[in-house]
Simulated scan of single mutants.
Amino acid sequence: MTPVLPEREIFLQPGEFYFGQAPARIRTLLGSCVAITLWHPRLLIGGMCHYMLPRRNRHQHGLSGKYADEAMQLFQQQAHHYGTRMQEYQIKLFGGGNMFLPASYSAYADVALNNITAGHMLLAQYGLTLTAQDLGLTGHRTVIFDLTDGHVWVKHQRLQES
């Protein structure tokens, strides 16, 4: 009889990154930020980032999950660490919700669109195929990613006009 391992629950705050192996569930709450998930179906490993901006304005030491381009470098490092290539993973994108209704639109609303655009551009740059996405519109999303089977559950709460 195979022992059942307890499942770990990991909650990502904005700017955080996690990569590991099953059994684990990774959760996050997204507004204008975007989450990228990578899952390897044979090895049952993968991760999620919760990036806030496409890139940072100045160079600093160390990579951060706050920035889309650096999060992709973190994913690449983890794939290499496990002896895999990023092209072997199922890739999914979530988030990028506009946190302002059209009537109250401001320049800050472009953050969501810039994050979505950065995600798509980085996937193309790395030669990765997107297997699923739930992006844009208004409001926030709760995302739960299960490393055991690669399933991602998304609950999208749109903004309501008063």
Rank of each mutant, 00 (worst) to 15 (best):
L44W: 02
L44Q: 08
L44H: 05
L44N: 06
L44C: 07
L44K: 02
I45M: 02
I45T: 01
I45W: 00
I45E: 00
I45F: 01
I45L: 01
G46N: 02
G46Y: 00
G46R: 00
G46H: 01
G47L: 01
G47S: 03
G47E: 00
G47W: 00
M48S: 00
M48E: 01
M48G: 01
C49D: 09
C49Q: 02
C49E: 05
C49W: 03
H50V: 03
H50G: 02
H50R: 04
H50M: 04
H50K: 03
H50T: 01
H50Y: 05
H50D: 02
H50Q: 05
Y51Q: 04
Y51M: 05
M52I: 13
M52Q: 15
M52L: 15
M52D: 12
L53V: 13
L53N: 10
L53F: 15
P54M: 06
P54N: 10
P54I: 07
P54V: 08
P54Q: 09
P54F: 09
R55W: 14
R55I: 09
R55H: 14
R55G: 06
R55C: 12
R56G: 10
R56D: 07
R56Q: 08
R56F: 10
N57I: 05
N57D: 15
N57C: 10
N57F: 10
R58L: 14
R58W: 15
R58A: 15
H59C: 10
H59T: 14
H59L: 13
H59N: 12
H59R: 14
H59I: 13
Q60Y: 09
Q60G: 12
Q60L: 12
Q60F: 08
Q60E: 14
Q60W: 08
Q60M: 09
H61E: 15
H61W: 12
H61P: 03
H61A: 12
H61K: 13
H61D: 11
G62R: 04
G62K: 03
G62I: 11
G62H: 04
G62T: 04
G62D: 09
G62M: 07
L63D: 03
L63A: 09
L63W: 04
L63S: 07
L63N: 06
S64W: 03
S64D: 07
S64E: 03
S64M: 11
S64Q: 09
S64K: 08
G65V: 02
G65E: 06
G65R: 02
G65S: 08
K66A: 15
K66H: 14
K66R: 15
K66V: 11
K66N: 13
K66D: 11
K66G: 13
K66W: 08
Y67C: 12
Y67N: 08
Y67M: 09
Y67K: 06
Y67S: 09
Y67W: 14
Y67I: 07
A68G: 12
A68S: 12
A68E: 08
A68H: 07
D69G: 11
D69Y: 09
E70C: 10
E70F: 07
E70M: 11
A71T: 07
A71V: 06
A71S: 12
M72P: 03
M72E: 04
M72V: 06
Q73D: 13
Q73I: 10
Q73F: 06
Q73S: 11
L74Q: 03
L74A: 08
L74G: 04
L74P: 01
L74N: 03
F75L: 06
F75M: 04
F75W: 04
F75T: 07
F75R: 02
